[in-house]
């Protein structure tokens, strides 16, 4: 009884002692709540609902003529759509607004996802971002991905390592994992399977901590590819077994998370019969 009374007293004193907070107008409050909720869901990997909440927030900001809030939430939504695999929608959203560094990076990301590396390269060439700018690691990582697609693994490795260096001591776990993944892919292409396996394992550890199923599944796929080409002096049969095990882990994660595309990639890697047809590529605006 005494402890409860003491707690109540402390609460009262804290409430009286603090400064009263300004109350936002209802629409601003609703927009902020929608945006905040969307961000929480995006962080949990619930991209579909996150995209809807960002869309709602964007509409609310537009209704009160808040351009900054509208643009910010459109970009949030574009990121949600990219995570959902709707790169064409994301590109439309990004194309509809004034383009700055963040916008250009999102545009390049969408173009890469749509299989247009040349367009992505051109977009990235227009980005002005010194090494100190906060988006520099993302820029380097996107350049690394462009180089990977263009079969230039050495340049890709250089960009990815630069990104990793920029991300050191920063609280950017997702981008750090992306950097490790790009390094692994570049080293695999360069034939350095041991380094590639280490890098891929680093990426997988981070993605597991972040609890992002699609990235985990793709990390396992990458590990399977690395094992398949044979790491070091491992016997060929053992390498194949290790690769198969990695692909099966990828398939298990993808099926559990309901990721059709990742599951399909895993089945193909395992040499299984295709069960789910790959959707036809959508025509997206350039």
């Amino acid at each position: 009884m005494g402890a409860k009374s003491l707690l109540l007293l402390v609460l009262l004193l804290a409430g009286c002692g603090s400064t009263p907070k300004a109350v936002d107008p209802p629409r601003v409050k609703a927009a902020l709540e929608a945006e905040s909720d969307g961000a929480k869901r995006y962080g949990r990997g619930d991209y579909a609902i996150a995209a809807r909440r960002f869309e709602e927030a964007s509409r609310l900001y537009a209704s009160i003529d808040d351009g900054t809030g509208t643009t910010r939430n459109r970009r949030h939504r574009a990121r949600g759509e990219l995570a959902l695999g709707h790169a064409d929608v994301a590109l439309t959203l990004v194309n509809a607004e004034t383009v700055d560094v963040d916008g250009l990076l999102l545009k390049a990301q969408a173009q890469l996802a749509l299989g247009r590396p040349d367009a992505a390269r051109q977009t990235l060439a227009t980005v002005t971002c010194p090494a100190a700018c906060p988006q520099a690691p993302s820029l380097s990582l996107l350049q690394a991905r462009v180089e990977l697609v263009a079969q230039r693994p050495a340049e890709a490795l250089a960009h990815a390592q630069a990104a990793l260096a920029l991300l050191k001591d920063k609280d950017e776990a997702a981008e750090t994992a992306n950097a490790w993944r790009s390094i692994a892919a570049a080293q695999l292409a360069l034939g350095d399977a041991i380094s590639a396996r280490n890098a891929a394992t680093s990426a997988l550890e981070i993605d597991r901590k972040l609890a992002l199923p699609e990235k985990i599944a793709r990390d396992w796929l990458l590990l399977g590819d690395i094992e398949k080409v044979g790491a070091g002096d491992t016997a060929k049969s053992a390498a194949n077994e290790a690769a198969k095990a990695a692909y099966q882990r990828a398939l298990a994660v993808a099926e559990a998370a309901g990721l059709k595309e990742a599951a399909e990639l895993s089945r193909r890697a395992l040499g299984m019969t295709t069960q789910v047809p790959t959707p036809a590529p959508t025509q997206a605006p350039k």
């Binding site: 969307g38 961000a39 962080g43 950017e172 997702a174 992306n178 990235k215 793709r218 990458l222 590819d225």
Partner: peptide, 15 residues
């Protein structure tokens, strides 16, 4: 809200 940077949300760089 500020979303954490993620230039490869689907992990497509590796595969």
């Amino acid at each position: 809200a500020t979303l954490k940077a993620d230039s490869d949300p689907r992990g497509e760089a590796g595969r």
